[in-house]
Design a protein around this nucleic acid. Structure first.
Lengths: 137, 137
DNA sequence: TTAAACTGTAACTATTATTATTTCAGTTAA
DNA sequence: TTAACTGAAATAATAATAGTTACAGTTTAA
């Protein structure tokens, strides 16, 4: 799966542990070991979907604006990675029965599969992740 | 998911419809619209795991050597794509609690998730895929 | 009222992953 | 003994991902 998912979960997990103050993209980027601009892209997506709030200017940054108990990995997956489960099919060769129809067959199977995976990921909230991380510490 | 999965399913589906004769890598490659060398790599993997047999020389090629009713997408997934569900984590930053533990937490969740997906894919045999493809025709 | 610390984005570069291609050795059948 | 095939290594091309630079806009505080 793409790393946007990991970066989003990382950011939310970090913000969930710091609910009282703004965290800057530089700090989050350092924690995740990636470039600040990259993390800002992910944070921007999370903001547009209401998971976090941002504030520009001195003392600004990002803060969790929803409930870590309610936000699940499913929603993060949908936001950052929906469709990545679908197997890549090279350009279709219509002169072959298999070539011209397999794509649709697999698409339909993996659409169901992604739904199953979604239900599985829905079991884990950001709070669960925070607790697991703290426990491992 | 990587396209090796699709190519493997494509090859097996095609071979399952032609159980009486050898199919050459060139023919399979043409059906899948990829380079023959690439399809031979995938076919080689399938052969090493006993799904198909190959024969060199004139009139050689590949042929299904197992039962299309028994071979499922789960086994093909395991062979070609196991682990691809795991989210990519950038290098760990040990100075951060989240950075240093999240990888393990997500790894454990997605290992379970992949098992769930495996069970789901286990429902579909190559014969099912062949039938679906024919039905769409 | 201006400098400093931030976010928001676009554009570009670098890196990595994937795929295609070339090449050639080995096998088999006609 | 040649033509049709597999097997596989090595390399080239392409695509996907990530990093970097640059700069406009916002906010706070000195």
């Amino acid at each position: 799966m793409n790393s946007d998912f990991t970066l989003a979960v990382h950011s939310l997990t970090l913000l969930a542990t710091l609910p009282d103050r703004m965290s800057s993209s530089d700090a989050i980027a350092a924690s995740a070991s990636v470039h600040p601009v990259r993390i800002r892209k992910v944070l921007s997506l999370l903001r547009k979907h209401g998971f976090i709030e941002s504030k520009e200017g001195t003392g600004g940054g990002f803060i969790f604006s929803s409930n870590p108990k309610v936000v699940t990995l499913r929603e993060i997956y949908q936001l950052t990675s929906e469709g990545t489960l679908q197997p890549k099919c090279p350009q279709v060769n219509d002169s072959c029965v298999v070539g011209s129809n397999l794509e649709n067959v697999l698409y339909s199977i993996f659409t169901d599969g992604e739904e199953h995976l979604g239900q599985f990921l829905g079991q884990y909230s950001i709070e669960d992740v925070v607790n697991s991380v703290k426990q491992k510490q």
